Amino acid sequence: MKRSTALAFAGATLAALAALAWAFAPRPLEVETAAVAEGPFEATVDEDARTRLRDRYVVSAPLAGRLDRITLREGDAVTEGLVVATLTPALSPLLDERSLRELQARVEAARAGVERASARLESAKVAVLQAGNEARRSEELARQGFVAPTKLESDRLALLAAQKDQEAATAERHVALHEAEQARAALGAAQRGGGPAFPIKAPVAGRVLRVVQASEATVALGAPLLELGDTARMEVVTDLLTTEAVKLRPGQPVHIERWGGPGELQGRVRLVEPGGFTKVSALGVEEQRVRALIELTSPPEQWRSLGDGFRVGVRIVVQARPRALQVPLAAVFPRTDALGMAVFVVDGSRARLQPVEVAARSATHACVTQGPAAGTRVVIYPPAGLADGGRVRGRKI
């Protein structure tokens, strides 16, 4: 064989071998990458919620009689003491002993309601004084550096809650006095054997939520006529899993979103009810849930268009850090040795396995105390075939 032919054959063989090596060489995996960031971090409990009035009042008929047509409609504003309906007593010529005793018992119950409401109001005043003293004591100790700022903030929130409770107790006493007045008037009309038209007045200022009996009709004693409520005293209620509710404390901030208006509304946890209940999920799974009540802290002008029973979304902040290292949650996965979590860091064209310590999680990111530096790109949704040192070709998102 000629020398030139041998060289040509050897060159062709080497080219074929190189082509086969290239054809069967492992290709770099195409992956999506994202950068590790550093900044404010919030771990939240996300759930659907609804709005509701903190207090609603049902105006009922204090005696049996002929009801005139109610001209008020849903949404109309009323003031305390405004005549909302007129009732003409329809009493039999001979008032039997049982009916008389029922009206007398109603007067006694109304009087007891006034006493109970007065006692609650006095208790609320004492609670305000006690909370005020505790807040002032904490402020003095905080200036001297003997208490933590969180204790001072808790005492201030406790004072605010006590003041709100005193306002509610005052409103309850107004309602109790109004009911007692109506009960005494009904008993007097019955003992007189009928009389002129009896005006039914609004116990509180607010708006009409529902007119139960709009048309003229004969109504029985205690029949509901309409519902009233103060739309300026709105709150948000949500049903949380009990495993999530144990993380909540009164005063924790809440972001209210998906309410239909621009931006987010702000609120804070007012109360986590102590009793849970069983609820069946959409998948047919029984869940233990508990209600959390959220107080709106945004200006009323911002959420004036919200009404009773509107659907919203809430994000309750259970942990907040002003500066934290954040890794996309889709990049974090359990290590094969079950000793913690890890991520794949992009090092040039290679993916390097790096352990991380996760301190908290949000809906999109994980807060890590040990991990890659800020700005490092990590693989999100790492494919099953990716191993430490594997070749990758990243796509930024």
Rank of each mutant, 00 (worst) to 15 (best):
R3D: 12
L20P: 03
W22A: 15
R27H: 10
P28A: 13
E30T: 15
E30V: 14
A34W: 05
V36R: 06
P40C: 04
L53E: 03
V59N: 01
L67S: 04
T71K: 11
P89W: 01
S92V: 13
P93Q: 07
D96C: 03
E97K: 13
L103W: 10
A105P: 02
V107S: 03
V114T: 08
A117L: 03
A119T: 12
A119S: 12
V126D: 11
A127C: 01
Q130L: 11
N133F: 12
R136L: 09
E139Y: 02
F146G: 06
D155Q: 14
L159D: 06
A161I: 09
D165K: 09
Q166K: 13
A180Q: 14
Q182S: 09
L187W: 02
L187M: 06
P199S: 03
K201P: 05
P203N: 08
A205I: 08
R207S: 13
L226C: 01
G229M: 00
G229V: 00
D230W: 05
R233E: 13
K247Y: 10
L248V: 04
V254I: 04
Q266M: 10
R270N: 10
P274D: 02
G275S: 14
L283M: 11
L293T: 14
I294W: 00
I294H: 03
S298Y: 04
P300F: 05
V317C: 00
V317A: 02
L325M: 07
L329G: 05
T336S: 15
G340D: 04
R350S: 12
V358C: 03
T364W: 09
T376G: 03
G390R: 00
K396V: 14
